[in-house]
Design a protein around this nucleic acid. Structure first.
Length: 416
RNA sequence: GUGGAUGUAGCUCAGUUGGUUAGAGCGCUAGUUUGUGGCACUAGAGGCCGUGGGUUCGAGUCCCAUCUUCCACCCCA
């Protein structure tokens, strides 16, 4: 047997409806905010992610599915959604459409990493991007969409963590200050922290090692190093969230793993699972970095697998259900089969979920099937019924049976 | 990339100190007198016991390797 590759999962017929539900909820919500869906390729030129996500990030350095195609091009399966969307924004000239551009997407994501709780190699993200405005109101609107998303799915115990990592200028100053703070004790830090020192010193701040934690006491905080503009932007975001009654917690350890983030960064964290279920922020430099006009933007992405995990925990009672069969047509003989097909087509046109026997099985077996598939009604059609234009309709739940005129209208009336 | 646990029918699991043709329950298919489900009964299909080596007269049982799954670190949604 050939099994599926490590870290992948089939979405089986018994649960695909849950995915449809999550995606539909997101689509309805985001469209109400004025966003339009965008679909971009599963694979892009590797260059896009090298420049977009950042060559030094873990995602690029060790997690990309990169290969050479038959034409010698370096291709990569998308390890995140924003870079491709921004590439499309630039390539299709969206800058010349009414600004700001508001987009949402649902896509599969590929990362070569070790599998564990809430982590696969192929997983799914739903995300939003708002391009073309640097105003804080856009940050707030994006955060609100995230909050409303959890509300719509009735997922509680999600907290909003907020931070600002400033612009490249203030961040560089801060990182220098941070290195200066750490440097005297660098030798005493754990090995992973040592490697983080040059590349990503801000990560050292949320190391879980006790020794590192202790030495981190009194470390400088990014928020104290923000330039005037970044500071004002962040204050405005916080103020407006408070005015709107949105609870948040400032967490200066939120750094985000992708290089393109600037100013506001945020995460929605599940208090039960302990992991981040939605993460995003502003990325004012990305569009230019990828060759477009200097265009500020903000967005987020959420992991569908993680969402589902929590969703099922809280919605056992009122879980969305897959659709039930309204009517099963049990048939005997060629003629009845033909009439049943015609009837089924007519009823389906009216939106009824109808199945008929396509396996030429015994009447008994057909009833068993209808029962197992939880059909609400079964209509039995044989030669007599076709001749008499009347047939027996059985309510599978109550067991009651009655005769109905064998025509679309009267059957529709009986079962709807 | 590092560390720990795991692997027997579609699913949940038995399988005795290594000993003939590997079992159960659920599920699936078909029957229990020819046109009616749920219950019951009967029968059937379905396993190179994760894979490859090794030890042994003999391995599902022991040893090694490898892969998968699960969990943790790293990192992230």
């Amino acid at each position: 047997m050939i099994q599926r590759p490590k870290g992948t999962k089939d979405i089986l017929p018994s649960e695909s409806y849950k995915w449809q539900y999550i995606e539909k909820t997101a689509a309805d919500l985001f469209e109400n905010f004025g966003l339009k869906e965008i679909r971009v390729p599963v694979f892009e030129n590797t260059e896009l992610f090298l420049r977009g996500v950042g060559e030094t990030t873990d995602v690029v350095q060790k997690e990309m599915y990169t290969f050479e195609d038959k034409g010698g091009r370096s291709i990569t399966l998308r390890p995140e959604g924003t870079a491709g969307v921004v590439r499309s924004y630039i390539e299709s000239g969206m800058a010349s459409m009414p600004s700001p551009i508001k987009l949402w997407y649902a896509m599969s994501i590929y990362r070569y990493e070790n599998v564990q709780k809430g982590r696969q190699r192929e997983f799914h993200q739903i995300g939003v991007e708002v391009l073309g405005t640097q105003s804080y109101q856009a940050d707030v609107e994006v955060i609100l969409m995230g909050q409303k998303f959890f509300e719509a799915l009735k997922i509680p115990r999600i907290k909003l963590m907020l931070n600002s990592i400033g612009c490249p200028t203030c961040r560089a100053k801060y990182q220098e200050a941070l290195r200066n703070f750490i440097r005297p004790n660098l030798e005493k830090y754990c090995d992973t922290c040592k490697t983080r020192f040059e590349k990503n010193p801000m990560r050292i701040l949320d190391c879980k090692e006790e020794a590192c934690k202790k030495m981190n006491q009194g470390a400088p905080i990014i928020l104290d190093y923000l330039c005037e503009e970044c500071k004002e932007h962040f204050e405005n975001v916080k103020k407006r969230l408070t005015q709107l009654g949105v609870d948040y917690e400032i967490d200066s350890s939120i750094v985000r793993g992708l290089d393109y983030y600037t100013k506001t960064v945020f995460e929605f964290v599940s208090e039960d699972e302990g992991y981040t279920v939605l993460g995003g922020g502003r990325y004012d430099g990305l569009v230019k970095e990828l060759g477009g006009q200097d265009t500020p933007a903000v967005g987020f992405a959420t992991g569908v697998e993680r969402i589902l995990e929590i969703y099922e925990k809280y919605n056992q009672e009122n879980m969305v259900k897959s659709r039930k069969m309204d009517l099963y047509l049990a048939t005997m003989g060629e003629e009845a089969d033909l009439e049943a097909t015609k009837l089924a087509l007519a009823l389906r046109d009216k939106g009824i979920f109808v199945e008929q026997d396509v396996a030429q099985r015994s009447l008994k077996a057909q009833f068993k099937y209808a029962d197992k598939k939880k059909a609400k009604f079964v209509l039995t059609i044989g030669e007599e019924e076709v001749k008499q234009k009347r047939a027996k309709l059985k309510n599978m739940e109550s067991g009651e049976e009655c005769e109905v005129s064998f025509d679309t209208e009267s059957i529709f009336e009986k079962i709807k």
